[in-house]
């Protein structure tokens, strides 16, 4: 692992009206490293992703790319740097077909004229490497199932030559086989020296592929853990902000209710 992180957030803050969604968040991603970003619902994970992707720029703080500070105010800037993002809400155009969505914003064109044949060929190739089953690459994505849409969104992030891939709950809608494929993919990305930010609520997935786990709680950092040397319980207690976990909470609740 190299010394300079490919991407580093320093003191990033963001507010929405009366909600302070992020407060002084720090995060580092090194090349060839998978960082899992975890936290309860509403902890600010997706908001953090959007500040990195240029969709909802931060109010405060510095983003460093390969050691130098950059301003990411538009999605285009993030793409040019080499940041590819799969959003939790997917962000696909329902009326465009699979090929159209995969290449949206970076169509293969000669003098403005689309090269549909080449795009279709690459789309098929890419989808095949991801073991994605889609009836046809020429149907509108509206006709796909939730998981198929998710795989299209993931495939989309791999076009171009990203250096950092951000996956916001990429396996939320996926079946067993497809989840395994995505986790394999994350490992392949790491082997190729890419930095990966993986957001997931599934601790087993996190334990399986992540090198480090960064915990967000109520919009603040709540610890960073080396996966190898940390138990699941420790991570969960950092997420919930207590020393207990979901199981002990339920016990406590049922105990209360039975009183």
């Amino acid at each position: 692992m190299s010394a300079t992180p490919v991407l580093a957030l320093r003191g990033v803050s963001k507010r929405f009206g009366a909600v302070q969604a992020l407060t002084d968040v720090e995060l580092e991603i090194h090349p060839g490293e998978v960082v899992a970003l975890v936290g309860d619902n509403g902890a600010g994970k997706s908001t953090l992703v959007k500040t990195i992707a240029g969709v909802g720029p931060a109010d405060d703080g510095v983003i460093e790319w390969e050691g130098r500070p950059v301003r990411i105010e538009r999605p285009h800037t993030a793409q040019e740097l080499g940041i590819a993002t799969v959003y939790q809400d997917l962000a696909l155009c329902d009326n465009l077909d699979v090929v159209g969505n995969l290449f949206l914003g970076r169509e293969i064109a000669h003098a403005g004229v689309l090269d549909e044949v080449e795009m279709e060929r690459r789309a098929r190739e890419l989808l095949a490497t991801l073991s994605i089953r889609i009836p046809s690459v020429r149907i509108p994505v509206a006709a796909l199932s939730g998981g198929q849409r998710q795989t299209v969104a993931i495939a989309r992030s791999l076009l171009g030559e990203p250096k950092v891939v951000i996956l916001d709950e990429p396996t939320a809608a996926l079946g067993v086989e497809q989840t395994a494929q995505v986790l394999d993919l994350v490992e392949r990305l790491r082997e190729r020296g890419l930095g990966v930010i993986l957001i997931s609520h599934n601790m087993a997935d996190v334990k399986a592929v992540a090198d480090r786990v960064a915990v967000l709680r109520l919009g603040r950092n709540n610890g960073t853990f080396e996966v190898r040397s940390t138990s699941q319980e420790e991570i969960i207690s950092a997420i919930t902000g207590a020393t207990d976990n979901a199981v002990t909470r339920r016990k406590a609740r049922t105990a209360e209710a039975s009183k």
Partner: peptide, 13 residues
């Protein structure tokens, strides 16, 4: 793309 989803188009750069 804009007719399909403005937000998706924006995020695609």
């Amino acid at each position: 793309a804009l007719g399909g989803s403005v937000e998706a188009a924006r995020r695609a750069g």
